[in-house]
Computed example of a mutant assay.
Amino acid sequence: MIAAAAMNPGMSSWMPLTTHTEASGTPDTVLILGPTGVAGRLAVQNARALGAGRIIGAGRGAEALRDVRDLGAETVELSGDPQADTAALASRLGGSTPTLVLDFLWGTAAETAFDALPQMPGTDAVDYVEIGSVIGEGAPCPPHSCAAASSA
């Protein structure tokens, strides 16, 4: 029963991860927006199973993020303050650009990622996959970010 219930949440990250791996090789860094839900936690595990070099999860809830760290991800706690969240995400990325972003949240979390990604060298190599929209349907994409990120 558990395996059946986890199929769709697990496949939501497995497919973009394996597609990216087949097309471009194992991702160096995977950024997961929304790692604390079932699909996000499975995304962390899938990325780890496929050999991602680094996994960063950005979301809310200190306790839930501790559980995500136990699964092998570095974490960023989003506060809802756009400037603070952008700075925290950019800091956690530490000057490296994720090769793949799996976004279960959209809305303001996507805006935070869009704002943080252009600060990184090599942003043009990012595959950005919007999987869900838990936070909201809208996320204005600044021209400098949309031109740099490709949709997988």
Rank of each mutant, 00 (worst) to 15 (best):
R41V: 00
G80E: 09
V76W: 00
G53Q: 04
A62G: 11
P27I: 08
P35L: 01
I56F: 06
D81G: 08
V38Q: 01
G80R: 12
P27S: 09
Q45A: 15
V30K: 15
E63V: 15
I55E: 00
P27Y: 05
E63W: 03
A43F: 00
T36K: 12
E77M: 09
G80K: 10
D28G: 13
E74S: 12
G53E: 05
G59D: 03
G72D: 05
D67N: 02
G80Y: 12
N46A: 14
G37S: 15
A58D: 06
A52Q: 14
R69S: 14
L65I: 04
R41M: 07
A47W: 09
L42E: 09
G53I: 07
I32F: 08
A62N: 09
L31Y: 08
I55P: 00
D81C: 08
N46V: 05
V76E: 00
D81E: 15
A43I: 02
G72Q: 07
I32A: 06
A39V: 07
A64G: 03
G34P: 03
D70V: 03
G59L: 05
I32H: 06
L71Q: 13
R41T: 02
A52D: 15
G34D: 03
E63N: 14
A39S: 14
V38N: 02
D81N: 14
R54D: 01
V44Q: 04
R48F: 02
T29A: 08
E77C: 05
S79D: 04
R54S: 01
R54M: 02
R66S: 13
R54I: 01
R48W: 01
R69N: 11
T36W: 11
N46K: 13
R60A: 06
G61M: 06
L71S: 12
D67V: 01
I56R: 05
G57I: 03
A49E: 10
G57R: 05
L71D: 12
R41F: 00
L33P: 13
R69W: 04
A47S: 15
A64R: 15
L50G: 11
G51S: 10
V44H: 07
D28P: 01
L71V: 13
A58L: 12
A62T: 13
G57F: 00
G34T: 02
G72R: 03
G53T: 03
E63K: 14
A39L: 11
G59F: 06
G61A: 06
I32Q: 08
G72T: 05
L42D: 10
L78W: 01
L33F: 05
D70P: 01
G57Y: 01
D81S: 12
R41Y: 00
A58M: 11
R60D: 04
A39K: 01
R60F: 04
A62R: 13
A64F: 00
G37Q: 09
L31C: 12
D81Y: 04
G40H: 00
E63M: 12
A58K: 06
V30W: 14
L31N: 06
E77Q: 12
G53F: 05
G51F: 07
T36N: 12
S79F: 02
A62F: 04
A49R: 13
E74F: 03
E63I: 14
G72F: 05
R69T: 14
T36Q: 12
V68Y: 01
R60H: 09
D81T: 07
G59R: 02
D28R: 13
V68Q: 02
G51T: 08
A47N: 13
N46C: 12
G57D: 06
E77W: 06
